[in-house]
Simulated scan of single mutants.
Amino acid sequence: MNMKSLLKSSAFMMMLAMFVALVTNLGGWFPESLRPNIRSDLTIWTLVVMLTLSLSRIPYRNLNPVAHGTSVLRAVMLGLIISSIIPLIGYYILKDTDFGNQATGLIFVAAAPFAGSVVPLSYILRGDMEHAARGTIVTYVVSLVWIPAIIWFTLGESVEMTDVLITVLKLLGIPLIASRLLTKVKIDKDLMAIFLNLCIFFMVWLSVGATNFKGIPAWVFVVFALIAFLRSFGLGFAVERAEKRMGIGWSQRVTDILMASYKNKGIAIALCTSGILGPITGDAMVAIATSIIMEIIWVAFMDSVLFSRKRMERELASEA
């Protein structure tokens, strides 16, 4: 595999980013000049650029949510509501323990919609592209309300909701509008994939590299890892099994599994580091960092096993 192929591989770049971030963190080599406010701005605007480019690849056709109500409802249910249940349960179990500050990070995992890369992954894996495109646009529009609602419901008066709303408008409002201006601009797919993966690498390094892991018992990481495992692997397998029993074909299953199990960790990171949590921001990143590690393993598993080319060809042949 050449360098270009590695740079195009999301799984490889995410794993490399986590390795470099942990080495930087544990080695005490993270630059002190990158103060929290600087990291927050860098994370937010990097994500704004990423989302703008990702959403710009979704064409205008067949986006009407009224004409495709079932598809849109399924996307919102899987991508926002069902996918948020496990991290929210985890937060409420842990919030009154000595590690409640760390558990706060689970709120941002719950609030985040599915990753914008669900659309290109659906294309690669022969998923339902129109469902993925409609679902992404509508889910991200709904997230303008969903994210502040989840944060207000869980944290209430402990955060300044005006700051939350401003952050959400930056993260989602700008890309939703700006992306529509770029839909007809041709961008080389390989170049775009490499650029987006480099952005992911930077954000993972910037956030995990600065996370304070000192003094956290091993069992806390195990608990966060278990929550992340249930949210990605557990939910992904549950959707796969349920829809296969219902006789739902490969294309819809692929997209639905991605929507339910593949959270946009960039949004979770950006929300957490935006400053709305004040001094506990570093603690809250522990849950998100642990979730990122599990999500990297899940992405690699989906790529190599769950959605492998051999399995895809076998499933499509049986449907035909």
Score class of each variant (00 low, 15 high):
77 M>D: 06
241 R>Y: 14
220 V>Y: 04
196 L>V: 04
123 Y>Q: 14
265 K>N: 07
286 V>S: 05
157 E>L: 07
13 M>R: 00
126 R>W: 06
298 W>V: 01
189 K>D: 14
101 N>L: 02
235 L>H: 12
274 S>V: 02
287 A>W: 05
114 F>W: 07
299 V>L: 11
238 A>G: 14
41 D>N: 14
23 V>D: 09
164 V>S: 02
49 V>W: 14
139 T>P: 06
37 N>Q: 11
3 M>R: 13
55 L>K: 12
83 S>D: 04
112 A>P: 04
104 T>D: 06
306 L>K: 08
90 G>W: 07
27 G>A: 14
35 R>T: 14
294 M>Q: 02
65 P>W: 00
185 V>M: 15
188 D>F: 09
46 T>I: 11
173 G>M: 02
16 L>S: 09
270 A>S: 09
209 G>T: 02
103 A>I: 04
37 N>A: 11
235 L>K: 08
31 P>R: 08
217 P>V: 01
74 R>F: 08
156 G>K: 01
43 T>E: 11
213 F>I: 04
271 L>T: 04
172 L>K: 04
74 R>D: 10
124 I>D: 10
290 T>E: 07
127 G>F: 04
203 M>K: 01
49 V>S: 15
138 V>L: 01
294 M>P: 04
136 T>S: 06
15 M>R: 08
264 N>P: 03
212 N>Q: 06
